[in-house]
């Protein structure tokens, strides 16, 4: 019994060590990021499928105006990028990458929309720290995580998955990626899927 407890302690020591292994966080944030450690890769079940109509929603945005998904119908493809939480390492080094890729999204006639369950003041401060973003960021804070829940990407701890949904101009879901929350999705994968939209 004692041995089992000791072995479990050993595994815990390993897990603590593993959770401390950081990603290559940008120096821009100094020590102002909260590291939640290694998390369960996926902790939710999708409720939507490729080929289905993307559920419509309206959410408040950093631009000041509520954003309705259906307002893009017939005009633009849409990429929804859900990130789990502001002020955390992987999320803080995901959207700044899209910041230099505007040309790619324009090339494929796609509007990029960021979504987080954080409230607007938090998102405002966090995106300011990044140096600003060219795309709009929506807050799925209240009712808490309702859009994340509708799409089936709300985790049991109240944050969303790290997920990407590509929706074409007809409002149809064309690509869904719910990746390991601990890892950034590859931009190359996104661009490959954007190409298929047109």
């Amino acid at each position: 019994m004692n041995d089992i407890r000791i072995i479990i302690a050993g595994i815990l020591i390993f897990l603590i060590g593993f959770s401390e292994s950081a990603i290559a966080g940008s120096a821009v944030y100094g020590n102002r990021l909260y590291n939640p450690g290694q998390l369960k890769p996926v902790d939710s079940r999708l409720t939507v499928k490729i080929g289905e109509k993307a559920p419509d929603f309206t959410l408040p945005s950093l631009s000041g105006k509520p954003v309705r998904l259906s307002s893009f119908l017939g005009e633009k493809n849409v990429m929804l990028t859900f990130i789990p939480a502001a002020w955390t390492p992987v999320c803080s080094d995901q959207w700044p990458g899209y910041n230099i890729a505007k040309g790619l999204f324009d090339q494929y006639d796609t509007s990029l929309i960021g979504i987080s369950v954080d409230n607007l003041p938090t998102l405002f401060a966090w995106t300011r720290e990044m140096g600003g973003l060219w795309f709009d960021v929506l807050s799925d804070f209240w009712p808490h995580g309702s859009v994340s829940s509708t799409y089936g990407v709300l985790r049991t701890d109240g944050v969303s998955e790290r997920a990407i949904f590509l929706i074409d101009k007809k409002g149809i879901l064309r690509f869904i990626h719910v990746g390991d929350i601990n890892l950034r999705p590859d931009l190359g994968m996104i661009v490959n899927e954007l190409k298929k939209l047109n």
């Binding site: 000791i6 302690a9 050993g10 020591i13 390993f14 950081a22």
Partner: peptide, 28 residues
């Protein structure tokens, strides 16, 4: 945590291997 553990319990070889191998890989 490890010092605490060493003081209170005899360190099991498996724990030591786990710590030395994985701990050193992971700690910045």
């Amino acid at each position: 945590l490890l010092n605490d553990f060493l003081l209170k319990k005899r360190l099991h070889p498996l724990v030591l291997i786990c710590f030395l191998f994985f701990g050193n890989l992971c700690l910045p």
